[in-house]
Design a protein around this nucleic acid. Sequence first.
RNA 1: GGGGAAUUAGCUCAGUUGGCUAGAGCGUUUGGCUGGCAGCCAAGAGGUCAUCGGUUCGAGCCCGAUAUUCUCCA
Length: 873
Amino acid sequence: MKSSQIRKAFLDFFASKNHHIVASAPLVVKNDPTLMFTNAGMNQFKDIFLGNSPVQFPRIANTQKCLRVSGKHNDLEEVGHDTYHHTMFEMLGNWSFGNYFKKEAIEWAWELLTEVYRLDKDRIFVTVFGGDQGDGLEQDTEAFEYWKAIIHPDRILFSSKKDNFWEMGDTGPCGPCSEIHIDLRSIEQRLAQPGKELVNQDHPLVVEIWNLVFIQFTRLSNGQLKPLPDKHIDTGMGFERLCMALQAKQSNYDTDIFQPYIAKLSEMANIAYGSANMSDVAMRVIADHLRAVSFAIADGEIPGNNKGGYVIRRILRRAIRYGYTFLKFREPFVHQLVPVLVANMGNAFPELVAQQDFVKRVIAEEESTFLRTLATGIQKFENYLTAHSGRGTMDGGFAFELYDTYGFPIDLTQLMAKERCWSVDMEGFELGMEAQKLRSRSAASVETGDWVEVQQAFSDTRFVGYDAHEAEVSLIKYRKVLSKGKSYYQLVLDCTPFYAESGGQVGDRGWLQANDTKIEIVDTQKENNLVVHIAESLPEELPLKFVARIDQVKRNLTENNHTATHLMHAALAKVLGSHVQQKGSLVNEERLRFDFSHFSKVTADEIEQIEQIVNAKIRENIHQEEHRELEMEQAKSMNAVALFGEKYGEKVRVIAFDPQYSTELCGGTHVGATGQIGLFKIVSEGAISAGIRRIEAVTGSAAEEFVNKKAKELEALKSLLKNPTNSVAVLQQLLDQNEMLRKALDQMEKEKARLMVPELLEKAWEVNGINCIVQRLNTSAETAKDLAFELKARMDNLFVVLGYVHDSKPGLAVLISENITKERGFNASEIVKNLAKHIQGGGGGQPFFATAGGKNPDGLDKALAEAKKMFAV
RNA sequence: GGGGAAUUAGCUCAGUUGGCUAGAGCGUUUGGCUGGCAGCCAAGAGGUCAUCGGUUCGAGCCCGAUAUUCUCCA
């Protein structure tokens, strides 16, 4: 069975059991402060489990792309070294939200595995939760009974809380689970040791393939468990492992999910897979990481230096590093695998096909950046070895600096050191690392208190802000949050006119008022689907009912910018082409910022065209067309623009300004008619990373101010230039002229020095074969220096002391022919220091030439006199 | 969000306790030599040492701010 068929069979099976099949959520998580990437199939249903969102379909199944780089069983550094760890993987899952429970979950799992996939029943073992004293929980006899009806009790194992009790986090929904394991060893091995003994022992061929979680409790922050009124099923089956089992392979990497990349890599590197351990590891690493990185980029997470972007960068760089070291690639290579990936997975994940070029380009760019980083690191490394030759051990601090500051991988440092028979002080390295981690952690801790529930029976905050700017609301719950020594409160209301930050539009500000108490709301945000109103302080007595009113001025200005963003998005596609995809957006009351995929600078001409189109649309005063509750299919038929990497619900909202021109899926708020925007003006355009440009723009009075300021600046410049007809040419001429004059002046100074030379040479006197010149001048330090060097060129065996006063500051220059410094032991630096005492200064230089400056011009003659004394006739 | 670094010629980079008339290789220009490959020799041009301010007799170097870029951690 091919992997694509295996995936399809799963979805078909659960569809036949009345499950609604949903698309995989994006890999990149938005609106959840605790999570950067989707790391489990249940992520997109978290709000349903938490009770923040209503249940639309009680039965759901899907395949979900997931990414894990850390956690109890996942360390990035291990991926590729074994046969079954991955960064990105697919999780097949079926869900019940308050619908069926343990019986059906167990029976269907068995039916699918043994009747559809026809797995060998003798190879299957299951585990059941064995109870836990600390939590006061009995063993899960219910699950045990259901299993006993279909599988021999010998094959059922009871396991501890560690393995068989699932929790979402420190608090929240949780419950016992039941795992299905499969023994893929050969008959001989199975006879030699019963598979039962290897379950949960990290054996590569006795693996868990499916976890059935029975959510029946919620854990409170005091650690207690509270039974849930509605019980849920949450299952997850590792797709890659399932394929390994069904394709009778010994390793996930031997399945048709990974082999195409390995084959291609093997061809590119001209190294057969299986020929050497480390090259095999490298190929597995790259095959795995290629998938993770490509999917993340397609979902909008670009390699970068913080948050999710940094995770992606680390994964990609790890792939490059393995290719560099073990497959000897010296040019970007990972991006060449993207077409293979698209050919393989494009069918199941259309976003890959649509974004293929972009993904390829971003990866290629990151690859060449990293290869450059490696090159500078190698140079630093070599410099260090030369500077400390003979030591044999590299200082851990330096190794850390190489890693921390120059991004040079520590294992590469170790490898290169080993090749030279050096070692690396790893203790010192770890020390530096720990200090770094400590700093970061202490800077970013957030403490959240328990929710104080004021009212029950709550499903979803109703948003009324599209139509109203104020509303009567009641408080549902609130909590206190501590972050970086500051505390604030989060409030949840039954309904609200406050728009919560999302889709780039900032959250509303405003007030909650009840009789004489007034609470200021400084921001509104979303945590998953939960709308939280943020207040810096709360009154002692908290009323239950309020009038909620938003700051309307801020909202209006924000709407101007949001609508302008839509108009510009459409204009960009028109002017630049259809490859323009939104990659990020920020809309607040001051300006708008829009990131989009495009591979070259937007020219001044194009900017002008874009502004023209947008301003024309503003002047048309187009009325907003809003469709609040559309089926996704309907929206698509209207050609509404949707974003990759954005999770849309079953019902979507569509905003159009002239359906022929701009139609977008959007939850944000907009102007009633475009004329309100007044004026649109692009303020800046630039690159933000490979293949992504950023435009910032302003509207309304802010745009007016911007234009006026520019005009004033230009006026001021022109009037300084005496209002010429062609001010640019005049300015250029002025700059050229300035450069020319500067050089001419330089020449003059040198010339002046040269002219003084004969006169000075005449004043020279000779003592013991040394030609002495001591003279007071009226020049700058620069000229005196030139002069000294001119003299040196004309006369041998020279000893020169020149004194000068420039800008009412005295200075000295001492020059001695090099042969004399050596033969007679004179040192210009020491001499000048001595002489400088008379002018209250100090100085120094090389033995043959030194300068000094001072504060007291009156002492200059004294200094020169002393110089003369040294060589008195 | 918190650290560490970098910014010097068209490019890649040196510049060691502040004393520098700021260097190298590549590239470039000119002249000469030369039968191949990155040909050889000689001479030259090319720098407000990122920007602004400070310390100092003196700053490419020290201190502060800004900008841009790189990088690690969360």
